[in-house]
Design a protein around this nucleic acid. Structure first.
Lengths: 253, 253
DNA sequence: ACCTGAGAGTTGTCGGACAAGATACTAGGT
DNA sequence: ACCTAGTATCTTGTCCGACAACTCTCAGGT
């Protein structure tokens, strides 16, 4: 039973429609600013009812991909989708690849340790529970740019300890998804500028005091359980992070 | 006729439903994890059709406020809404107030200047067009923490130049909304750690080389037109910025 | 104690219909 | 010829009713 490959369980049709439209936009079939076919026409073309199509459109709208104007039509938003959007792209690996560079991993090691009090709180575990700690230096085109320390509950890999080794050579998100069927639903990230202390500086191969961006975050699975707590030290020039800020649409009185 | 009184009820009903549910969640009437009434029941209670309610629910879902499970019900998500979320809170003023401190402005000045080539591009203007430049030092409880430089198209205030003066004492977003009816729909922000150069250091009252977080962003109005381009230098310890990252829901092949 | 299946409840999808807003065109006046 | 106002038509918003697909619970049998 454990070796069950993830059955492509039937996703709601509206999700498929949403993905389809997202792809069309991303691939340029629907240029920014262009008008989509009318809802009845699009519904026929996609083989779904208008209600289902509207579900998808509503989702795309709140993602900011399209704008719907009453009586006028639905338009593809000027896709200010920047390459490395912090609130969309997940993981250092994706970010490096998005920048068109080769993602690599060096100085990787993992260990099972008892959770500190603060770590246990972040992951909603009992203090002292076993947690898997993975430390890695991420490289872009062979050059070190990020030092990361990832912490996840030990029980996740208790039955398949060999999974930890895979994390030394591949994205943790990839491993979680492919080996455990665990999909990250969302994460909460914080960041601030810091100076490299001697430990970090040595591992990244930069002088002490070098400018870094520290990012720490907790990722949650679909059912809201914390899955991964991570700390990253980025070289200041490594990435240009971007965030889409959604305006004060709804104001509480 | 031109002098039509602005009837405010032009918003789609689904938006009102969405706001209503958002308020109920924020006010604790719908605790995190609790189940919402069934769609037919909720629709009756809110006085809308089920289709309209579903539009609102779909939007709330993609905002991460609720989770819908096929055949099981709709549940309020564990709202990990952090205080100073970069992708939600807008403007330094809001951020300072959210932290429970008194927002102030010092060393404020404004001037009308011709747009540089890069600024013109950001604001989609002709190079050399007049732009209003507002420079301010923002304070929290009297202590300088942010140096900001805001740039907006001159035509916006061409007919009411006195508006520029208001920006020296209040949030630009507030002024835009109250005086011009301009509501920011979304913005694209980028950031990176920098060191304070002599100019910035002097104005913020910190030593040269101090750790800062530089944020630059462009804000857009509801119709997608760029309205405001701004540069901010934040003291590293001023805020703890947070971003809600939405998971890799849809993966492009 | 465990497994099995029927039932009720909930969300997903469908089809059609009408209302409300926006745009484009036409007829009328200047 | 130009502008204006009204109309025609298209598009999105909302509504209704119905059925399908899925979950969970609970009674019944093993």
């Amino acid at each position: 039973m454990p070796a069950g490959p993830v059955e492509a369980r039937s996703k709601p049709r509206s999700i498929r429609v949403q993905d389809e439209l997202t792809q069309r936009i991303d691939r340029g079939m629907l240029p920014a600013g262009s008008r989509l076919p009318s809802e009845p026409a699009l519904a026929v073309e996609l083989g779904v009812s208008r209600a289902t199509l509207r579900e998808a459109l509503r989702a795309l709208e709140s993602e900011g991909l399209v704008r719907r104007m009453w009586g006028a039509g639905t338009y593809v938003a000027d896709s200010r989708r920047v390459a490395n959007s912090l609130d969309l792209n997940f993981g250092v690996t994706d970010a490096i690849r998005a920048a068109g560079m080769q993602a690599g991993i060096e100085q990787a090691r993992h260990s099972m340790e008892p959770a500190t009090v603060s770590e246990a709180a972040r992951l909603e575990l009992q203090p002292g529970s076993d947690v898997l700690v993975v430390e890695r230096v991420r490289t872009a085109d062979g050059k070190p740019i990020v030092l990361s320390r990832d912490i996840l509950p030990g029980r996740l890999i208790a039955k398949r300890p060999e999974i930890a080794d895979q994390m030394l050579t591949r994205s943790i998100y990839e491993v979680l998804e492919r080996e455990l069927g665990l999909v990250i639903h969302h994460g909460v990230a914080s960041f601030r500028p810091v100076r490299a202390d001697i430990t970090v500086a040595r591992r990244l191969g930069v002088p002490r005091g070098e400018l870094l961006l520290a990012i720490w975050q907790v990722d949650y699975s679909e059912d809201g359980a914390p899955v991964l707590s991570s700390y990253e030290y980025h070289l200041a020039d490594a990435f240009e992070f971007t965030v889409l800020r959604r305006g004060p649409g709804r104001r509480l009185s």
